[in-house]
Design a binder for these strands. Structure first.
Lengths: 216, 216, 216, 216
DNA sequence: GATGAATGAGCATTCATTCAT
DNA sequence: AATGAATGAATGCTCATTCAT
């Protein structure tokens, strides 16, 4: 009976916040800044979010949820561990890296939220499982203890994302391709395999968009 | 580099600023905060620094200069590439990791002046040289191109830093030792060598202590 | 006095507003606060009241009307001046004191509409009449002029209210019973009488219960 | 060496705050309001007070301290309990009542601070001592228990102040003289004494001002 | 009539920087 | 040179009221 909550406003706030948080950081972005560009009054923000911090949380959590849900679905549908690793490295890693704003936020402000570790562990689960199965299948003795394996995963994942983020900012003479290539190399030389090429179209039967974590 | 009189005040401001910036970030630290703990009047900050941002710049630049000068000196004095790699991994990497919180704010709050690309490349030179010499010495065919080498360095350095930060706040079941160990393992298994122990006892196992990139 | 439909909503708003105004004051209570606890939409407040201030006005005026109507009825029905004084002190004073927190906000937040002067004077009439009749009946020479009588009433009422509020927050080692007892003592020793016990059991000793100036 | 803290600014803030808090209440007065009339920038307030609440606290505490210090000194200097009561009722009560703003604040916002009870008890001490000595001296059997005595004191003190406050606001048809007279009457008829007239000049050998709690 | 999203002035407070002393 | 009070724009957030639905 009253005006209805306008989800497009919520989305607009999140999109602008994502852009600005990534560009100048959370603290250096004021709520007024967020609202200025999209022509909304300040008060509106507080219709859709409890406070500034909740905008950040929403950007991180909802972006991640979308990314992870698709990753999990595709992994569950693929029995071959090699193909699964290929999927992760060649479809999902680029997708993550493509969304520069999201990447930036999750690596900087995400640390302030307690939940980056948990997010990392969730991907670790999939990667770790694929690696273990692959090692078993190929009879390769894994030389990494479980602790070393999880260290390796964290280092490659975080280091890769951070490197690309800085590269995109111009701080590092590095391309996204270099990173993907480097990780492929590590996997292939560790297991003596070749990651299979993606059969594109095979996992993108999902909803409307262009993919990516949001609005890359 | 001395700008005025009383270098000790300047150093005190930088030390306190670094501590607070690491702890709560640049924007969340006020100039008054910096000055409060060390009993200096606000005004004095502007005798030694043009503005708040210049304090950060000074901490970064002077800290790095000190770090890199020592690294370069030690590397120059050590003819064995293996011992040089050991030095880098066991003495200088821990020093960097000890400052992970501070380093991360440079990468975090959107500053351009960090210029870590250039800094990383300077270290890259030393690491790359050591690796190349080692490969030649041991007859191992190096499989990494220069670009891959610098990618690898960036990934290991940034990933290591992020992992340590996450570990420090309990989000990752990981110690700094695990990380150093992991990197040693990568090097040792890649070249079939053992990194030699450091000459002195200082700074080797857990880099917590006296180190730091720039407490002057 | 009904203004629209659904008198129960209006009453619920008034009751909750009174509770919150008493607890935290008028300015510290938002219209949203009032409405939150009773599950009504904000807009509905403006169906029943012109604005926030009108809620307060309604609580005051209607509460008082009810209080005074009953007081007047009971006094009119009781021919004995002594019994009438007993009624006032033992039934109606506790009712007022039960609402001390609410009454105090009327006297506190700078409202003109409380108009307690007029209200107090109306009670003054009944008390004065009872005192005069009692004095005449017992042959006691009344030493208080009408002005002194109304001064006395104001002092006892306001002082009692303040004392009870202070006592309630532990700032004064005093119970509501002590206060009632003290006023009884003043009356009894001034006229050499004993105030008769109330007919019913309700409301006499400690006015905490069902009373109130206007919970409708 | 820097500008010196300007106590006159602090005083101006307190004076204006006192006026406004008394006129419209603490919550209805903004810090901007306080500062507007005296041509000071908002920031200045926070040079002299930690926050808005501290202004209120300062107004109440410093006003009271001044009042109470003089009262205590004069009482200590006067051995006759009767003269002491006279002093209290005829010099200090009027002085308190004369400062309408202070009166208003202490009776409204003062309740929010925990310390009105303590302030009351401090005066109670002096009044109670005088009354006890007087009773002993005159052989009058005091009919009030200690608890009743303190109840009486609280009621008369608070009720008196509150009545005058409302009277001054026009809410009560009552003068300050009526109140003083009423209290004199109570004392005189309770003890069968006459309060002696003040020998003015005898206690006012104190510092600069016109007396009163501040700027009556 | 009922609803609750929308609005934007207003709130208390902070803070980098200046500048009178 | 040293000091720290002064400044006022800016901050995140609230809220009485309106009005589209």
């Amino acid at each position: 009976m009253a005006r209805e909550r306008d989800e497009s406003k919520r989305a607009a706030i999140m999109a602008e916040a994502k852009r600005l948080f990534s560009e100048r950081g959370f603290h250096a972005t004021s709520v007024q800044d967020v609202v200025r560009g999209i022509g909304l009054p300040v008060g509106s923000v507080y219709t859709y979010f409890q406070n500034k911090e909740e905008i950040l949380k929403a950007v991180i959590d909802e972006g991640w949820e979308e990314f992870f849900t698709e990753l999990a679905r595709d992994c569950a549908a693929e029995p071959s561990p090699l193909a699964r690793l290929g999927l992760i490295v060649r479809r999902y890693l680029p997708r993550l890296l493509a969304d520069a704003d999201f990447l930036s936020i999750i690596l900087t402000e995400g640390f302030r939220q307690g939940d980056i570790g948990e997010k990392l562990e969730r991907v670790s689960g999939f990667v770790g499982a694929a690696v273990n199965e692959l090692a078993q299948e190929r009879g390769t003795a894994l030389r990494l203890s479980p602790k070393q394996a999880s260290t390796a995963l964290a280092v490659f994942f975080l280091g890769g994302m951070d490197a690309v983020r800085l590269a995109r900012r111009g701080s590092l003479p590095l391309g996204e391709g270099d990173l993907i290539g480097f990780i492929e190399l590590i996997i292939e030389s560790s297991f003596g395999v070749r990651l299979p090429p993606l059969d594109e179209g095979g996992g993108a039967d999902e909803g409307g968009g262009t993919g990516g974590t949001g609005d890359a």
